[in-house]
């Protein structure tokens, strides 16, 4: 028996918004520690890794490990039927081929339930090596989204260059070029409003704007984003979900032909 109760269904709504354009379907692996998801997009350029801790739920019960293949488009349809502050419960029997999703309003005057068919998905789990990243940039997630959106008007690729002084985002295309430089913030009231850089070695890598913009769909989940980079390895874009877990996106760099 699997059962998880979340006090704010809006959190799961935002999570689905953050992955539905990269993944059509995904396997949710449930265990007593929580719910995990790891899946690549069809082009094998990016990977979504999500972890929701059992302790982040109001109630969480998972007697046996369970892998649920979910069509994300279907789940988005169901999530459209609730309000952000509805309480939601997801439930499945062991070896079930359906998942039940229930919503209740806070005053319990409206209860609804939806049953969704589960799928058998071929799972391809990738081993992600432990990496000591050369640069770790923490910045406001809204600022990162703004830069990705602004610069993708000018070109398909974004160069991210990180040094001790700061981080520079650059692009160029038919109409010209664009650069945005961010320096480490010297004073800030709240940690999430600042830009901080931990660096052991300068790194400069090129990435596809299209994917970065898709990752930015996670912006409503967190005020801060963490970018981790090392030479010639995939970029990690991480959004912490308060008390519940995190979403990490991995993006393979563009390389010289």
């Amino acid at each position: 028996m699997f059962e998880a109760r979340l006090l704010k269904s809006g959190q799961l709504k935002k999570i689905l918004e953050a992955i539905k354009e990269l993944l059509k379907e995904a396997t949710f692996d449930c265990s007593d520690s929580g719910i995990q998801l790891q899946a690549m997009d069809d082009a094998h350029v990016s990977l979504v890794s999500m972890c929701l801790k059992s302790t982040g739920f109001d109630k969480f019960r998972c007697d046996r490990n369970l892998s649920m293949g979910i069509n994300l488009e279907s789940m988005v349809k169901i999530m459209k039927c609730c309000s952000n502050d509805d309480i939601m419960t997801i439930k499945a029997q062991d070896n079930a081929d359906t998942l039940t999703i229930m919503f209740e309003t806070k005053n319990q005057e409206k209860m609804s339930d939806y049953e969704m068919k589960l799928m058998n998905l071929d799972q391809e789990h990738l081993g992600i090596p432990e990496t000591n990243y050369s640069c770790i940039i923490k910045m406001p997630s809204s600022e990162f989204a703004r830069i990705c959106r602004d610069l993708s008007q000018f070109g398909d690729s974004l160069v991210i260059a990180c040094t001790k002084e700061g981080v520079k985002f650059s692009t160029s295309g038919d109409i010209g070029s664009a650069n945005v430089k961010l320096s480490q913030t010297s004073t800030f009231d709240k940690e999430e409003e600042g830009v901080t850089i931990e660096m052991t070695q300068a790194v400069c890598l090129t990435f596809a704007c299209r994917y970065l913009n898709l990752f930015c769909k996670a912006t409503p989940l967190s005020t801060q984003v963490i970018l981790s980079m090392s030479g010639d390895v995939p970029l990690v874009v991480e959004y912490q979900i308060e008390e519940l877990g995190c979403i990490r996106y991995y993006l393979a760099p563009k390389i010289e032909e």
Partner: peptide, 14 residues
């Protein structure tokens, strides 16, 4: 020019 690399050349299937 630059070309897009694949994630599977960095991470191996388990």
């Amino acid at each position: 020019g630059m070309k897009q690399s694949s994630l599977t050349s960095f991470f191996k299937t388990k």
